[in-house]
Design a protein around this nucleic acid. Structure first.
Lengths: 258, 258
DNA sequence: GCGCCGGCTTGATGAATGTCAACGCGTCGG
DNA sequence: CCGACGCGTTGACATTCATCAAGCCGGCGC
């Protein structure tokens, strides 16, 4: 609950607020408060009225949707990320649920205040529009990834993006439990296992959470990555501050989650 | 090419411009021009630099993405709709291709001018953010629809939304060729045929482009429509002018396309 | 140490979907 | 009138994927 200056500073450096006047930022964060949640907490259920913009400062949260007793993961977020911006802008119901995967620290900003701030500060509204554009494009990538590629191909591309985000070493570390990864890639844990097994022929060696891509050329020939689907832009924990780079809240959508 | 006042008026009534000052609207439409395209024209290819915001005034256009010789339809748009707003806001490459399905009339607005206008007029920037939020939510619905429902269920829900949009009569008219519908629902034309055949047991009678939903209760029990996925809001050809209603450019995403 | 439990893997099976081929049936042009 | 062509349908088949069941393994508490 104690709202520290350091926490506000982290929000200030969000691309979302990049162009905003200090005055605007102050107004937008006026009624803000910080909250800490244990792992497995449901922050928001789809259909709920959304009153706050959430800013994940620490931890991991998952966004998912359900229908008819089935569930699908839409994104896994890492700090610093905002989420449910679109619902806040429209003052509408949430279309997805959010729950913590690990113990998380979340800053909550009044939706009402944000909307007022947008009306007053064109630069801030522009920042919001840019952030939303990034989210939108993240979703377009996700749909293309989902509908155009098979399971093994999605995994291969995930590994390549992950490798790129971690600095391009031969062996990378999976940032999530495999079950979470499976959900993110739109398959069952069983099929993720089999997909890994298939990739063995392409020089992918798995050892727990660490994965080595021996034979980069071969795996790339299978994955056929493209900037029109895969966003290899480094974006993970470090905030760039440049609003133009794509991948706001949803940056972690398919591969971009590390 | 002749830019008539009537055409500009139609754009003026777009929710996108609802809050904008007349001055802003004038500036944004300064270098605008109107263009007419025959059916089957490619307006934009994914990867292209985007210099204009497109406003579909008449006709039908399809948005799709490709990878590895496969193609998927992301949306089918009807007038009046804007498209590739996100790319314009970020001054980025297009993530999807656009092509006319029928002869179309399209207004093209300078992206540069739009971005400048956003910087100057907070109300306009707010309108853009709202439009983008609607698009974003449309995509979220699309992903949930795609990942959580099977083919027959997607079709059933499509029919229900379509029925709702056409005023709720027992028998509705498919607004597209079946091949286009199949692509929109994420299946092959063959499977669409079979899906229709399956729905016969649920009181769905197909006769060319006209479909009758005898036994509404039965088909609804199969479809299980929900506002968290299906947007039954009437939205088709008539512009509401209310920016808050959801479903901007992408409103036609899954069912909302008529 | 022992046993329990959760995450992961593996195999067997079935449902859903894509692919390929053939056919009916309209439209259109010779 | 006839034939070509495009759309839609139907059937046989292959592939992908989910589901169910069982087993392996490492961590942790007793």
């Amino acid at each position: 609950m104690p709202l520290r200056a350091a926490d506000l500073n982290r929000s200030r450096s969000l691309p979302l607020f990049a162009g905003a006047a200090d005055e605007t930022f102050a107004a937008a964060t006026a009624g803000a408060f910080l909250q800490r949640f244990p792992a497995g907490t449901t922050l928001l259920t789809e259909g709920d009225q959304v009153d706050f913009l959430y800013v994940l400062l620490d931890g991991v949260v998952e966004l998912n949707g359900t229908w008819n007793d089935k569930e699908t993961t839409l994104a896994v977020l890492r700090p610093v990320s905002t989420f449910i911006l679109a619902a806040v802008v429209l003052d509408a119901d949430a279309l997805m649920s959010a729950q913590t995967i690990e113990r998380s620290e979340i800053l909550m900003l009044s939706g009402e205040a944000l909307r007022r701030a947008m009306s007053r500060d064109a630069q801030f509204a522009l920042g919001v529009a840019q952030e939303l554009s990034g989210c939108y494009r993240g979703l377009v990538r996700a749909i293309k990834n989902q509908k155009l590629r098979g399971g093994a191909e999605r995994l291969a591309n995930y590994l390549l993006t992950q490798q790129s985000r971690q600095g391009g070493p031969e062996t990378l570390t999976l940032p999530h439990e495999k079950r979470v990864l499976a959900a993110l890639l739109g398959m069952t844990p069983e099929n993720l296992s089999r997909a890994f097994a298939n990739l063995a022929d392409y020089g992918v060696v798995v050892n727990g959470a660490s994965v080595s891509l021996t034979r980069p050329a071969v795996i790339r020939r299978l994955a056929k990555p493209t900037p029109l689907i895969d966003n290899h832009t480094p974006d993970g924990t470090t905030i760039t501050g440049k609003a133009e780079r794509e991948g706001g809240p949803m940056k972690s959508l398919l591969s971009p989650l590390g």
